[in-house]
Design a protein around this nucleic acid. Structure first.
Lengths: 227, 227
DNA sequence: CAGAGAAAAATTTGATCATATTGTCTAGGG
DNA sequence: CCCTAGACAATATGATCAAATTTTTCTCTG
């Protein structure tokens, strides 16, 4: 599972701290991000209520939040589903990600510490292992972790939240690609990125991330046009 | 964006159609967008419940949604307030708006119809009147309407929703500027924009909107640094 | 009499509320 | 100055109502 709460107190009684709607949000978001929910799949509140073991209110609030972020879509008949990405929207996503993420990477390059770069390298190492093992779950988690961790060093709150929203929109489709082609032909530009970070070269870092995004999206686009 | 009710019956009885949480969302959003809520002002659920005359559940869901969009901010102590924009975040907003809105304007320029341009011109005319009359409410509404209407022609769902979110973040601060300086020294680049649209000149439209954004933000920045 | 299609019942699902529970802030006593 | 009661606000529950979908039933035609 993911790193949930950083407990300042090592003792018990930490489970009730975060509000349930927050917990529900994180769980559902992860389901979307890591492909447990397929594009086009309808979501029912009751289904989530029973599968998450939470009450109705927190789940509904989490759904509202995710809908606002574009991770879910509510139809005119008040039903909710995982959005299906069309080519048109995928191109939009590419454009927006290219407008935001390289910029974040550039800012991060100017601020990130050597230790944090080591951390990224460790993530990337795990990523390579996951690719070799064909472990799609881990691949998706670590790939996201790499980007998210890097961008977090940009110190740009708002842009970061927009990048998050964009990833949420791309998530389900990424999963579909992996399900179809496996993890083998998923090269990335992470090593180039890390090299740029070590040199504190903002432009190079931005370029590497841009290339990474282009690569990934061309995979998704190919997969989409075949379907 | 809002595919609300495609009424099969053109007659009345449409007041109960949209879900209350949707209604609550729109009302609160407008309060933020048009400056009825000041930056830093704390929000209480009960307050909104009684002032909007709605139940607690719809209001809560609307607040979650707005929080997800960055229009509201929830503290670690479970309290909600209108975010206060700091210079740092304002610069971020500028950068993001400049990355997205000129692009939307350019796309719109390639697609918009002459009739729609006339509509924009009418909005701009109303805007000038509002400025002369010192009517801040109308100014904010019409200024938003001008941009929003233009961008809607870009046919870019996702970017449009991000632009909306950015406006929501900037809204309260814009209002503060107007409250401080009135509407008189609020020049805009709308006429240049309209001219560019008539020529179907995407680049010129994008430049005009970029200039408009820079102007507006320099006003806000000045106001912020004085406070 | 078989089958297409419409009407109606049943079921599923979403929306909302009243209320109980839990957590947070505040003011006064130690 | 710290600590604790109580007032206040947010969170969460489960029940109830309404809308929508699916299934069933019925009728009418070929």
């Amino acid at each position: 599972m993911s790193v949930l709460y950083s407990s300042p107190m090592p003792l018990a009684a930490a489970s009730s701290n975060p509000p349930l709607h927050q917990l529900a949000y994180e769980k559902i978001r992860d389901m979307i991000l890591y492909g447990d929910l397929a594009p086009g799949q309808p979501i029912t509140i009751h289904g989530l209520v029973s599968s998450l073991g939470l009450g109705m209110t927190p789940v509904r609030e989490a759904i509202r939040r995710l809908t606002a972020e574009g991770a879910l879509q509510s139809t005119d008949t008040r039903r909710v589903l995982v959005p299906m990405l069309h080519v048109r929207q995928l191109d939009e996503l590419s454009h927006l990600r290219l407008a935001i993420e390289p910029h974040l990477a550039g800012l991060a390059a100017e601020r990130i510490s050597p230790e944090a770069i080591d951390g990224l390298e460790a993530i990337d190492k795990g990523l390579d292992d996951a690719i070799e093992a064909g472990d799609v779950q881990s691949y998706l988690r670590l790939n996201y972790a790499f980007h998210r961790t890097l961008y977090a060093h940009s110190d740009s709150e708002i842009a970061l939240s927009m990048a998050d929203a964009l990833w949420l929109r791309a998530g389900p489709s990424l999963r579909v690609v992996c399900g179809r082609y496996g993890t083998l032909n998923l090269p990335d530009m992470h090593e180039e990125t890390i090299a740029a970070l070590r040199k504190r070269d903002a432009d190079a870092a931005a370029s590497a991330i841009a290339a990474d995004i282009r690569q990934g999206h061309s995979q998704i686009r190919r997969s989409l046009s075949e379907a």
